[in-house]
Design a protein around this nucleic acid. Structure first.
Length: 271
DNA sequence: CTTTACGCCTGACGGC
DNA sequence: TGCCGTCAGGCGTAAA
């Protein structure tokens, strides 16, 4: 998916189109996403006012007068604001229809995304209840990581990708943050000092903020609400740069599978 | 409890 | 040209 910066960019992109509007309903062309799209979605949405558009972790939360929508983009989801009569493309699974003739259209080839209905407070939904702190909030810092990692032997890259530890960090930004912090992605999470975790927390925050500032990272699928790609790919130090020189020391960037996921790092800068 | 592997899907790409 | 294997930004679940 889109990791945190891409979801945040999407949130910012769709918010102006939603603010002050009502939904008139929904059109579900394919309900088999990660979980079935609720059959009653159209009835739930009809006539409801949009109260807020928030993000928690990689979930978009559209709060309505009564209840709300929880959206997830999975690996390949795109959410765009379009005129309702825009031509349909393959994998345009769901339209959320607004009262000004526009729709919020979800396109998701791999169908790992989700459209869920939550009657009450979205944050109480089982998928969201146990999530870790937001990396851009004050609740997240190196001391939290250090405390949470105590006794763990798993690779620190997998540790920071665990959404119960810290949310929003996916495969791209895990590699990038560890590179910035000079930490080897395979290093056991429980064998990193508090000082190094503080550096890592700072690196996570910086890399996410820098990516948001450039509209996210487009490798293949991702586009923002206006259809534009994200430009942080140009600023990636290691991700998908196997064999290319490390920006700091010029040693070739290595690519390895860690926990079944492609990982990139500099063997001499990261310990 | 922690850790690992596996599906869920489609599409793009490289090798033959 | 086609076929086949591999890989892709996530994450819940089962099993060890």
């Amino acid at each position: 998916m889109p990791e945190l910066p891409e979801v945040e960019t999407t949130r910012r992109g769709i918010t102006p189109a939603l603010q002050g509007r009502h939904f008139t309903g929904a059109v579900v062309r394919e309900s088999r996403l990660r979980w079935p799209v609720p059959a009653e979605l159209n009835e739930r949405l009809a006539g409801q006012a949009v109260e807020a558009v928030n993000r928690r972790a990689k979930y978009l939360l559209i709060q309505l007068a009564e209840g709300g929508l929880i959206l997830h983009l999975g690996m390949s989801g795109r959410l765009r604001v379009l005129p309702a009569d825009s031509p349909l493309h393959k994998h345009d699974h769901v339209d959320l229809c607004l009262d000004d003739g526009q729709v919020l259209r979800l396109n998701d080839p791999r169908r790992f995304g989700a459209v869920l209905w939550q009657p009450g407070d979205a944050l109480e939904h089982p998928l969201l209840a146990a999530l870790g702190p937001e990396p851009l909030s004050a609740a997240f810092d190196g001391d939290w990581l250090h405390a949470r990692a105590r006794g763990l032997s798993l690779a620190c890259k997998n540790f920071i990708m665990n959404q119960r530890v810290v949310v929003g960090v996916g495969n791209i930004y895990a590699s990038e943050a560890l590179y910035r912090a000079g930490i080897h992605p395979r290093r056991p999470a429980g064998r990193i000092s508090a000082a190094r975790y503080r550096r890592l927390a700072t690196a996570i925050r910086e890399v996410l903020e820098a990516a948001i500032a450039r509209g996210g990272t487009t490798l293949r699928d991702y586009v923002g609400a206006d259809g534009a790609p994200g430009y942080f790919k140009l600023a990636l130090d290691v991700y998908e740069r196997g064999g290319l020189p490390c920006p700091r020391c010029a040693a070739p960037i290595r690519r390895e599978l860690i926990g079944q996921r492609a990982s990139y790092y500099c063997g001499s800068c990261q310990r």
